[in-house]
Amino acid sequence: MSVKFVPRPSQERGHADHDWLKTFHTFSFAMYQDLEHMHYGPLRVINEDRVAPHTGFGTHGHREFEIFSYIVSGELEHGDSMGNREVLKRGDLQMTSAGTGIRHSEKAHGQKEVHFLQIWSLPSQSGLKPQYFTRHFPDAEKTDKWAKIVAPVGSDGVVEKREAVGPAPVHSGLSLFASLISPSTTLKHTLVQRKAYFHVIQTSGYNPGKPSGAQVKLSAGGEELVLREGDGVYIMGEAGATLEVKNEGEKVAEVILFDLE
């Protein structure tokens, strides 16, 4: 099956260093605006954020977005206008369906920096009632296999409860998978939709220059691409096409994969 890769190199992402916040933007966000990278299907934001201890995003509002946070390291303190208050740790995923409007804050908790991915998608319908969900996926569930951590409402295994086992529900045509791939290990994924987006998380440390750290090779339909930490790739193909992801480096690669309508 025909598949096309369009690389999104780490060093070409939007980037800002505010001292308390070091961030990369895959898509246009805040002061970074690029008409070639506005969204991809329903996927609107992938920000790779590092927030310094005792700092964070003060209370602010959102509406008509599905907003989720994937915790890589450290602890993230969340509070919102729905009354939710908690500290999220590695392996935790929180999903806020902002709907008609919410206000929330996100801050580093404790003495360490928090590194997390802030992801937004466009909802498939407007005017939804705001909701909040949390899920936990320990490393063992992601080691050398795909863990489905977000999936559309109504999908198999999706439970619309604040806390539950299985993927967090999202009101978008989007499924999100995560994995920790050991060196020399290959994983496969069969596309359910025609589009996908793949990203290698920058786990070895903040690096606004040339990517280093983990190295993976992505293959599909005769296409091949080598990626390092912070790199991503737009994938255009056909439902049923098979992607292969091989860790060619010497350290574990933490990766995420969006299957998009």
Rank of each mutant, 00 (worst) to 15 (best):
K89W: 04
R90N: 06
R90W: 07
R90I: 04
R90A: 13
R90K: 13
G91F: 13
D92A: 06
D92F: 08
L93A: 02
L93H: 04
Q94A: 06
Q94Y: 12
Q94S: 07
Q94N: 07
M95G: 01
M95P: 00
M95K: 01
M95V: 15
T96E: 01
T96I: 12
T96S: 04
A98E: 04
A98P: 07
A98L: 03
G99S: 14
G99H: 06
T100L: 15
T100W: 13
T100C: 09
T100V: 14
G101H: 10
G101T: 07
G101W: 13
I102S: 02
I102V: 15
I102M: 10
R103V: 02
R103S: 06
R103L: 08
H104L: 09
S105L: 14
S105H: 10
S105Y: 13
E106N: 05
E106G: 00
E106R: 05
K107A: 08
K107C: 05
K107W: 02
K107I: 02
A108R: 06
A108N: 11
A108H: 06
A108C: 08
A108T: 10
H109V: 01
H109K: 13
H109I: 02
H109C: 08
H109T: 00
G110K: 06
G110D: 12
G110A: 13
Q111I: 11
Q111H: 07
Q111C: 03
K112I: 10
K112W: 09
K112Q: 15
K112P: 03
K112C: 09
E113W: 14
E113V: 15
E113L: 06
E113Y: 10
E113I: 12
E113T: 15
E113P: 07
V114M: 08
V114K: 02
V114L: 10
V114H: 10
V114P: 06
H115T: 10
H115Y: 14
H115R: 09
H115Q: 09
F116R: 01
F116P: 00
L117E: 04
L117P: 03
Q118L: 13
Q118D: 11
Q118F: 14
Q118M: 03
I119V: 15
W120M: 05
W120P: 02
S121Y: 03
S121E: 01
S121G: 06
S121F: 03
L122W: 04
L122N: 04
L122P: 00
L122M: 14
L122S: 09
L122Y: 10
L122Q: 08
L122H: 07
P123C: 09
